[in-house]
């Protein structure tokens, strides 16, 4: 599994397409409804999935572990939302922490970890 992390609009999805030859129709884009295609070649916007998890009381790391056979060969993309001031709202705090824990887990399981900065790839693992 190849994990791509970075701030908003830093070129994460474009990098997945160019570096890992992922076609646009192979990318599953998460949204707030919690749906996820565990077997997609590439899953983008995992931060939307973690937001759904927080709202519905689910544990994103646990869910990823229980579907571990499905995504081991995938490209996973998550926005880095870890660097602001501690959010005032409880939901945003829980969201930030859940996303951070998921990112740490996925990075530890990944074959490669890439951080995007201004469209440039920084290899972390």
């Amino acid at each position: 599994m190849d994990f791509i992390i970075g701030g908003a609009y830093q070129g994460k999805r474009e990098y997945a397409r160019s570096r890992f030859s992922v076609a646009e129709d192979e990318i599953f884009t998460c949204c707030e409804n919690g749906r996820i295609d565990w077997r997609a070649r590439c899953i983008d916007k995992l931060e939307e999935f973690t937001l759904w998890c927080v709202r519905s009381g689910a544990d994103p790391v646990g869910l990823f572990k229980s579907h571990g056979d499905a995504w081991r060969g995938s490209v996973l993309i998550c926005m880095d939302i870890s660097c602001g001031v501690v959010p005032l709202g409880a939901e945003n705090r829980a969201w930030r922490e859940a996303t951070g824990r998921l990112c740490a887990y996925l990075a530890s399981e990944a074959d490669s970890v890439t951080r995007m900065f201004c469209g440039l790839a920084q290899k972390l693992k």
């Binding site: 701030g7 830093q10 926005m79 880095d80 602001g84």
Partner: peptide, 8 residues
């Protein structure tokens, strides 16, 4: 760099 905080 203003792209990495947990705010909507």
């Amino acid at each position: 760099r203003i792209y990495s905080d947990a705010i909507r």
